[in-house]
């Protein structure tokens, strides 16, 4: 395969949510999702770079929350954007926006990755938590709280985890998430409710500690 390298870090255009503004000789130009994908399919590297700038961080956050591993998350993002470059021509405007399409690609890649190394992350987190058990009693600091959250989310079944992350953290509409996961909105709500119910159980001690800390603060004040 012939490879080309792009370096378009300088002179970047302004970007807003939903559309990309390109600086042209005639001034700013707003591009719709359809125009962006058509341009990328036609090999326009500048538009591709704009799309990377606009969407890569959100996709990285999603992949990281799904996988719990920064390196693997970055690999997923890289593969997602390679597919944007190579498969933009197959994108259908009536089915999903760019963000939803990218999330769907990343979602499928994350599921594949999770199936490859299913137990690795959970084992690693369990070890970390055991090592920190003594500090948990007295000082539930932010880092440890983060780990508890990460572990609780990681232990959710993969579909519940995806639904929760896409709805809670990625800010996507319920219809968009249902499209990404290829299920109905009712089924999505059911998955979300189960996920949150599980989290309420697994994070119950966080709730008690949070309430306890708040009560102490109120006493002190």
């Amino acid at each position: 395969m012939v490879g080309t390298s792009i370096d378009l870090l300088g002179g970047r255009p302004n970007i807003t949510t939903g559309v990309v503004n390109l600086q042209t000789s005639g001034g700013r130009r707003m591009l719709t999702d359809e125009q962006i994908m058509a341009a990328i399919a036609a090999g326009d590297q500048r538009t591709y770079a704009d799309a990377v700038r606009q969407h890569s961080r959100a996709i990285a956050f999603y992949a990281w929350r799904m996988l719990g591993n920064q390196s693997e998350a970055e690999d997923v993002v890289q593969e997602t954007f390679l597919r944007l470059w190579t498969q933009a021509g197959r994108w259908q405007p009536d089915r999903a926006g760019i963000s939803t399409w990218l999330h769907r690609v990343a979602h499928n890649l994350c599921i594949d990755q999770m199936r490859k190394d299913k137990s690795a992350l959970t084992d690693e987190l369990d070890e970390d938590l055991e090592a920190n058990q003594c500090t948990l009693e007295d000082d539930l600091d932010m880092d440890l709280r983060q780990r508890r959250l990460q572990q609780a989310i990681t232990q959710l079944p993969e579909r519940q985890r995806s639904a929760l992350i896409l709805c809670h953290y990625q800010g996507l509409s319920n219809q968009a998430v249902a499209d990404i996961m290829e299920l109905s909105v009712d089924a999505l709500e059911s998955l979300l409710a189960r996920a949150r119910r599980s989290l309420k159980v697994s994070l119950a001690d966080l709730k008690q500690r949070t309430n306890g800390t708040n009560a102490k603060r109120q006493e002190n004040t």
């Binding site: 490879g3 390298s5 370096d7 378009l8 990377v52 961080r57 890289q78 390679l82 190579t86």
Partner: peptide, 14 residues
């Protein structure tokens, strides 16, 4: 991440 993505070699579009 941006730098990494923007510098990665892009395959030819078939």
């Amino acid at each position: 991440l941006h730098d990494r993505l923007l510098k990665m070699p892009l395959p030819a579009q078939s």
